[in-house]
Design a protein around this nucleic acid. Structure first.
Lengths: 344, 344
DNA sequence: GAGAATCTTTAGATCGATCTAAAGCGAATC
DNA sequence: GATTCGCTTTAGATCGATCTAAAGATTCTC
């Protein structure tokens, strides 16, 4: 009976202390690797822990210590490999710092985002890495500041708010894409847009327009496309028949670019030779598509890592100024872009 | 001073109770939506919570209640969309039950898996959904049982252990693939393998062999391939030059199939007409590849959901017998398979 | 109107850690 | 021998909720 009950009750620090013949306080110091305890005592306590199969209870600890070593991560779309890669980067960086990720998927709905944030607060997360959904109220970040909840935005941001942000120089990426096509002789370049309108969307579009105008080209040829298959079969035709006669297109994402390329192939136009297409993000699909997609790499994994580092530094010095870490893109030239066809 | 200090200290249940002029115990009952409290009291307490901006403290609650409403999820490779989809399914199902996901990436390393499990225990998760890495020691599940930590395996399992499992009828999927090709007249069918050896790997391979033998075909034509790009350029040649003269191949995964298809295209053999290829899992890439890939859909998102449901039911009745939820596959025929070319 | 039954509310112990402030102890210093 | 100092250890309060067991209201029954 008694032995069974003892088995059921979990082993606590007090048990360990008794087993090692020290006080609870000393045992606590050993766990936290305090330099105060004598080596011999430390060994005795550690041996006792092993013997009893002691497991640290973070929940109880967090109650006094006000640190849970837990970070909330909110992504708008888990199934999108772009975010999955960012998540992997975050997880890796935090894991190295002994922290743990609490994950939630906002599914691009502001209402979900708010309930998620509440739940994370209830859980006592030390901070949140947020990839805000399109339509997030700017007041949200202010509220978080009022709650003293450190927030780092990743990949997207709401307004020019005062808040840490790890992002990508999307405009620079568009400049690289436009310059690449211009150097190949393209003059009429279309832009394929679509999906929810958030800061990354706006920056990509604005970056495209700015880059075109800087080179005296018309940025007005845009085409609305779905963000994922199935793709309307006439998508390519809309560009082929366009009065501006574009010879190339830059797409908002790789998936869109791959789909558009397929649409051209189905219409009998050779992508690469006949019509050039540039994707964005350089996900695995860019390498896998045929023809291989020229794409602007945004390294979401590294951005996730940067976001994690920002959060860790914020936890260390809560009062430091806000920081923005903007990582640069790189154009990866493959087979979907080639010299513009000679005009008649 | 005092007002500032009050602002800094977090609002507790005791504050709420005082504000509403009830006891702590009553306020606690209101939070937990107990039917014991009178309607009028409930309203008063809820109003007080609103007024003070009260946030529930799960950590403190978990201390007595022995339920944290937290579930650990361990995946072997976050960047793989297959697992990302499963994760999305899990998250959605748990979110609906008011639970939260603590995520960790084992990166296919058994050592990581053990430290992750320890951390999750320290966090007091109510249970774990585990996608075990290849090479997991079978003793691990026994240990978890000893810890009274409910574990559900998903997509993969270690040995025929007694433990809940949500998986896929991989063998049935292989049967569908083989039957599809056989019906198209293929007699010599190769199998493309690769990657870490886990239960899903073994079941796919064994399923292929069994399906082939059941139809009197030779399952011996296998080819080792990398699981991700870059792909060796001579991959297609190895099959074309194979003495068994295969006319089709079934691949372990869609990515592998897409890469192999590209390899054939590069070698000048038309996939579909000249050589048929079947992928596995039916991820987005299958629809996006050209030619579109015929693939066996495994619905990882639904498996994730099933795993979450299994865990929830296990939490409700800890002593119920172990359950295995095996979901069925569906063959999605697209353009990468066609009638076998006539033999000379 | 007494007693039982039902509905609400509560005081106080409790979960398992950390933190504070202080005490014990041996060696060095005066 | 008393005092100081550095090193190590500790008792007891504390974090914010839940749980138990019982008390206080209110209604019902005879």
């Amino acid at each position: 009976m008694t032995s069974e009950q003892r088995r059921a009750r979990r082993v606590t620090l007090l048990d360990v202390a008794r087993e090692a013949e020290v006080s609870r306080a000393t045992a606590s110091l050993v766990i936290r690797k305090s330099p105060l305890v004598a080596d011999e005592t430390r060994r005795r306590v550690e041996a006792a822990m092993d013997r009893l199969g002691y497991v640290y209870n973070m929940g109880a600890a967090g109650m006094r210590a006000a640190r849970s070593n837990t970070v909330g991560v909110i992504v708008p779309n888990l199934a999108n490999p772009f975010f999955a890669e960012m998540l992997a980067g975050i997880e890796q960086a935090l894991e190295g710092a002994g922290m743990v990720v609490v994950l939630a998927n906002s599914r691009e709905a502001p209402a979900n985002q708010e309930t998620i944030l509440r739940r994370m607060r209830e859980r006592g997360v030390d901070g949140v890495i947020l990839c805000p959904v399109a339509g997030t109220r700017p007041a949200l970040l202010g509220k978080a500041a009022g709650w003293k909840l450190p927030v780092v935005q990743a990949l997207r941001h709401v307004s020019e708010s005062e808040c840490d942000y790890a992002g990508v120089d999307y405009a620079g990426g568009m400049r690289q894409a436009v310059e690449h096509l211009r150097a190949l002789g393209h003059r009429s370049i279309a832009f394929g847009t679509g999906g929810p309108v958030h800061s990354a969307y706006r920056e990509r579009l604005a970056g495209f327009c700015a880059a075109m105008e800087a080179r005296g080209l018309d940025p007005g040829v845009t085409i609305e496309l779905p963000v994922a298959p199935p793709f309307p079969p006439e998508a390519a035709r809309r560009l082929i028949d366009h009065p501006a006669r574009p010879t190339a297109a830059i797409c908002f994402s790789d998936v869109m670019a791959a789909c558009l390329a397929n649409s051209f192939a189905d219409a009998g136009v050779a992508v690469g030779a006949g019509f050039s297409i540039v994707g964005f993000d350089d996900l695995a699909v860019a390498e896998m598509a045929r023809p291989r997609l020229t794409s602007v790499a945004t390294f979401p994994g590294e951005v996730g890592e940067a976001a994690a580092r920002l959060l860790l530094s914020r936890l260390e010095s809560p009062e430091r100024g806000d920081r923005r870490l903007i990582s640069l893109t790189r154009l990866v030239a493959r087979d979907s872009t080639a010299a513009a066809p000679a005009r008649d």
